[in-house]
Design a protein around this nucleic acid. Structure first.
Lengths: 213, 213
DNA sequence: AGAAGTAGATACCGAGTAGTATGTTGATGG
DNA sequence: CCATCAACATACTACTCGGTATCTACTTCT
């Protein structure tokens, strides 16, 4: 078969597209969407705006692509623990640990998606942008629904207090996502140190649901 | 005594300044700092840029003023429960409830401060702005330290698990602040409904600290 | 070698906007 | 009733930045 000249249906994002996304995520993380110029994004990879516009049709499309990738990374990180066998408590704990370590390891993407899609994008926007926005929002909700589901499992099994899962998922995700706001990368931080941090946070969110007695 | 002609030493922010701040907080909430033009802020009060520049020297100064007011509102909201007599558990619960209700009732300010001072303001900034930024950051830390303090009280009294208070305060505040991101004002929401929501969230964060046993 | 496509670079335009300089109006005090 | 000042409004400037139109170097296929 040799090399594939065709694009796979899964379309694994060409290297250059990822390089641009990485640069964009760093720039958006530091300055936010509105304050980031495409010139600065392209500077980040020693290139010019032309390179970006070759791969993305607009600034918003680039922004959405960063969000999409962040959501997909999140889904990939928490999925395994969600699907694992075991108690709801352990599954949730695993999800929270994986989520937190993901934030540490991919801070730019995760901080950008934690900032949220700024709302002015919702206002004056064309159809294709509106569709992409709905799409990204769906990915976000899909990830949230994994948490809701495991919370409900824990309530059903009696491991957790009887809570409104949809409601409690909000502060739970807040506790996790907040990490992207305060965490500052430490040079040479060991994997064990990351794990310890993630465990602390996971203990906190799981504890918020467990029965007392 | 009649009406006071003098400004109090505490300088309770003249009405017009608050009106401008309210408008600015709404605009910044919707569009973020960079994407909000001062023309739009002044439109919000049926005025023009001139009015804003009469009271504030720059867009950043206005932004800082919104932050400052948000921090002060927060401090005023959580202070009483913090200083109350009683168990650490109850004090923390009271702080979390008050904090959440504050978010609901003053969403624009609280969402703006939850978004954080965008970092590009830190970069190319003059001395006075740098000073204001440090000032607002100090207010934020002061509020956080109230939470840290009550967590430590609970650990000392044995009510809470032995945790690193400074670390655990992060997800705790994340759980609370996140409310400003997902909460959408409900017309005619009763005080009881607000309280119920706030209780759920407070239960969650307190539960994250209590001993299971 | 030539043709055609790929992967950008460069130059430019028009819209939006922070900040400023100056004009205007109503109230106040003498 | 005039001068002054507070509280803005208006007009303008300088600059940034998204988007586009055009140009160029390199590669691949024939």
């Amino acid at each position: 078969m040799g090399r594939q000249g065709r694009i796979e249906t899964a379309e694994p994002l060409a290297d250059r597209r990822i390089e641009i996304l990485d640069a964009a995520s760093r720039a958006f993380m530091r300055q936010g969407f509105a304050a980031t110029s495409l010139d600065r994004v392209s500077d980040e990879i020693g290139s010019t705006k032309g390179a970006i516009y070759y791969y993305y049709r607009s600034k918003s499309e680039l922004f959405f692509a960063v969000h999409r990738r962040g959501m997909e990374l999140t889904r990939a990180a928490i999925g395994p623990s969600f699907e694992a066998q075991g108690s709801a408590r352990d599954r949730l704990h695993g999800m929270a640990v994986a989520h937190t370590i993901l934030i540490i390891d991919h801070l730019p993407y995760l901080r950008v998606i934690a900032q949220g899609l700024e709302m002015h994008l919702l206002e004056r926007t064309n159809d294709s942008e509106r569709a992409e926005l709905a799409d990204v929002a769906a990915l976000r909700e899909a990830n949230e629904s994994l948490y809701i589901s495991v919370i409900n499992d824990g309530v059903a099994s009696g491991e957790f207090r009887p809570v409104d899962a949809k409601l409690v998922a909000k502060p739970l995700l807040g506790a996790l996502n907040w990490t992207s706001r305060w965490y500052q990368p430490r040079r040479g931080e060991t994997q064990a140190a990351k794990k310890q941090l993630a465990d602390s946070i996971a203990d906190f969110v799981v504890g918020g649901l467990e029965k007392k007695r």
